[in-house]
Design a protein around this nucleic acid. Structure first.
Lengths: 228, 228
DNA sequence: TAGATTGTTAATCGATTAACAATC
DNA sequence: TAGATTGTTAATCGATTAACAATC
């Protein structure tokens, strides 16, 4: 796999390609051109070819791309075949939802264990994953290679837990707390799922649309008045 | 409020400004310069001033920005003061987690009601919000102005429910299903929270780092060999 | 072969950064 | 007043789009 320095914009598009390719495979589509793929994703064919060309040559002139083959390449680009391991910290509502519904293995991850402070949950299993006491965190990290910690603890505990994690070798965090963990001069990878940021962006777009519609209505009103 | 056409990049940064400003207020900071704000967010002062200048003049030469005042401006930009209303469809794990933990009102939204097919849940309340039968969806939408539908149904139901929503006047969806709802030529606003996209991006970054470290180790190895 | 479509180079467009006059 | 810092214009940088030779 070629691996030049690839821009964030490209990297954020790759998972969308994967999802679309899975969809195409399910629909029985075996080949697709950058033109058609672009149509379906709202991207230009140029951009799609540029994106893939960061990683190699996956198409064939005059034919396009084989869907199944491209899907495998995309999966490899994303590291889905590397068998990364994860632990989950905090089996609250979000933690439970992830353990219950989110299929880590579908995306190439092994969820090794979860950790909780609530004694009622410790020792129980959820979707086949054992919930351990937070007291065991350090010893577990010493004995297991863990690539990612999924952080789904309450806001107040976020920074404290993060410190314990990074002190014990964790170098990547999938952050579901609404706390800004990213320390600019740290080498820890943090991927945020900030619900509020997402909702507020939507709020912005709705406001924008409302304002535009109001402005349009005002212009129409004025015009109608002038005609009289 | 000035409202020129603002790029997506800017819009995605505004919620981060809000979060940081809230943090500063809580810490008792009353004024901040674009320089300091940039330091804390990993952005250049230029970019911060450019971003705000899309919406107005919120600072003061020689002084910087008043934190509380800027926070209010940012909130207004995002439409947090518009009292948008929302309903939630699908009280599964994710739906429940949102109703339980996510404070809609903190971000200016009123969660009016939730809808479910499971009879055991219908008629009950969660965090003060009534769970109605999906059968009541159409009549509810006819009687209430709803700005956003939060979609947290199982994957299989996503498209069907979306159609019911849009047929009954819903024009913005906050989508928690892993389904691509965005129809390029539709005017419905869709804001996606795709967990898998997020995890796969992280997977990419971890892979990249691993490859770099392996390459570095290989070079060191070679060097050590050459010295012998 | 002719038509289609790639991978890549060049051109364009847009976003970020730098610079600076205005001014608190 | 002098120092600080804004808002904005100009310069730079990077990402997207267009074009096209290569080739299946």
């Amino acid at each position: 796999m070629k691996r030049v320095k690839v821009s964030n914009n490209v990297i954020r598009r790759i998972p969308r390609y994967l999802r679309k390719l899975d969809e195409l495979m399910e629909a029985g589509v075996t080949r697709i051109s950058s033109f058609d793929l672009g149509q379906q994703l709202g991207l230009t064919p140029s951009q799609i070819r540029q994106d893939f060309s960061c990683f190699g040559e996956f198409g064939q002139q005059g034919y396009g791309y084989n869907v199944a083959a491209l899907r495998e390449q995309v999966a490899a680009i994303l590291g889905m075949d590397r068998g990364f391991s994860a632990i989950l910290i905090g089996v609250g509502n979000i933690g439970r939802a992830l353990m219950d519904n989110f299929c880590f293995s579908e995306w190439g991850f092994h969820l090794l264990s979860a950790f909780e402070v609530n004694p009622a949950l410790i020792g129980t299993e959820l979707s086949g994953v054992l919930i351990r006491s937070m007291d065991e965190l350090e010893s577990f990290l010493a004995e297991n290679k863990v690539d990612v910690a999924v952080l789904s603890v309450p806001k107040e505990a976020a920074l404290r837990v993060t410190e314990r994690l990074t002190k014990n070798g964790i170098r990547a965090i999938w952050n579901f707390t609404n706390v800004e963990l990213t320390d600019p001069n740290s080498s820890i990878l943090v991927e945020n799922v900030h619900f509020s940021d997402s909702l507020l962006s939507l709020s912005y777009y709705i406001s924008e649309r409302k304002d535009e519609e109001a402005a349009r209505a005002a212009r129409a009103e004025k015009l109608a008045g002038a005609e009289k």
